[in-house]
Design a protein around this nucleic acid. Structure first.
Length: 208
DNA sequence: TCATTAACACGGG
DNA sequence: CCCGTGTTAATGA
């Protein structure tokens, strides 16, 4: 476990902090599609993502979803950090996109380490900034860009996250995450296929 | 003009 | 057959 930590966080944290994480952190392995956090839940510990990917979604009262951004290895959930600070409920939903490995850090350590380790403080602030920037990008996409651009960005993100050209989703699932209807997704995907950007198959598609 | 909803036909597993 | 997919018609923002 210490080796895994060093592999992904060795360049970020000092030796002493890595050992601390190794001591108090709890390794958690989750398969893809697991809901790690729902809206309204209280946060009990802070996750560091060692391997895999997590998607962060916003959800309305009717259960409609909207994809906010993906977390990759080396990332952490900014929402968790702000919630920890004020012991507030979660405002977002987190679902594993791939099989993932997490290290759960008890929230008491958050504060303690911020005072104790410079690298931790930098990491927390950087993560916060990074997530905020991604959120702004998503807002820009929703507010200023057309659905076809959003769809293409979604496909590219997915390919980048999974490391595979093949995307195993139905049109309905994509429509749900982008918060639109399947008709639109089908039509736009068809257009992308005609432009030679993607290949369509049943239950999957390839980005070229 | 473009998204959404409903409805329907096609076809592959 | 069931379900994902492609298309169309009607309606509304």
């Amino acid at each position: 476990m210490l080796e895994d930590l060093k592999l992904h966080y060795g360049s970020v944290f000092e030796e002493e902090l890595l050992e601390q994480i190794n001591k108090v952190g709890i390794i958690k392995e989750v398969i893809s599609g697991t809901t790690l956090m729902g809206i309204g839940q209280y946060i009990t510990s802070m996750p560091l993502l060692i391997d895999g990917a997590i998607k962060i979604l916003r959800e309305d009262e009717e259960g409609d979803e909207l994809l906010l951004y993906f977390l990759e290895k080396g990332d952490t959930c900014a929402m968790t950090m702000s919630c920890c600070a004020g012991n507030k409920k979660s405002e977002i939903k987190a679902i594993t996109e791939l099989d993932s490995i997490l290290v759960m850090i008890p929230i008491e350590k958050m504060d303690e380490w911020i005072g104790k380790y410079k690298s931790w403080r930098t990491f927390v602030l950087d993560s916060y900034h990074h997530r905020l920037m991604e959120l702004l990008e998503t807002v820009d996409n929703i507010a200023f860009k057309k659905m076809d651009k959003r769809l293409l960005k979604y496909l590219k993100d997915k390919v980048a996250i999974t490391g595979s050209q093949k995307i195993k989703s139905t049109h309905q699932e994509i429509a749900y995450e982008l918060h639109t209807s399947r008709v639109v997704v089908s039509r736009l995907l068809k257009k992308l296929e005609q432009q030679g950007i993607i290949e369509l198959h049943r239950n999957s598609l390839n980005l070229l």
